[in-house]
Simulated assay, not measured.
Amino acid sequence: MEKTILTNMVMIEDGKGNVVVQDRIKTWKGLAFPGGKVEKGESFVESAIREVKEETGLEVSSLQLCGVKQFQTELDERYIVFLYKTDVYKGTLVSSDEGEVKWIPLNQLKKADTVEDFDQLLEVFQKHSVSELYYEQNQVNVL
């Protein structure tokens, strides 16, 4: 049986063209959307809501599944990221030990210091015709 790691990432929009980004400071460095691992017994949506609260201080709801990102790790585990977006939130941004969080205009992300593959991730978040980002032997496929 294949070992699988389940995670999530959430694009939070303010309705004015801005999104929440986190300047990740651990292994995957650069600007990205908040998110993290799904814990045992937790639904995918519940995990995304919890991770956003832990990393940003915001309480989100009405999450829409945009697609997935997946790849094999160096330990031959399948790593799956469920990609959600929402414009329903309340609270005030608070940074965490995962990195500083802030609002940034969505149209500035292409020029920003984002994490590796973020341009391809944005395609999954924004295009209805794209639902998967898949890595196969060092080749990136957007499907």
Rank of each mutant, 00 (worst) to 15 (best):
Q137V: 11
F71P: 00
S129A: 14
I12Y: 01
K85N: 10
L143N: 09
L31D: 01
E132P: 00
E54T: 00
Q126K: 14
L133S: 01
Q70C: 03
V60L: 04
K3D: 11
T27Y: 13
I104F: 04
T73W: 10
K111W: 08
L121Y: 11
E98N: 10
T73F: 11
L122S: 06
L65K: 14
K69E: 12
G99V: 03
V10T: 13
K16F: 08
E77I: 03
K37S: 13
N18M: 06
F118I: 05
N138R: 15
M9L: 07
Q108A: 09
Q137N: 15
K53R: 14
V115A: 12
K127H: 13
Y84W: 13
L65G: 03
D119W: 09
S43D: 04
E2Y: 07
Q120V: 06
G15D: 07
I5D: 04
E55M: 13
E77T: 06
E51V: 03
G35V: 07
Q108H: 13
L133T: 01
K3C: 11
Y134M: 07
V115P: 03
K111M: 09
S61T: 12
G36Q: 05
E100H: 10
R24D: 09
T7M: 08
L6W: 04
E132N: 08
W103M: 09
E59F: 11
D23H: 15
E123Y: 02
K110M: 06
S62A: 13
L6E: 10
Q22K: 05
Y89V: 02
E54C: 07
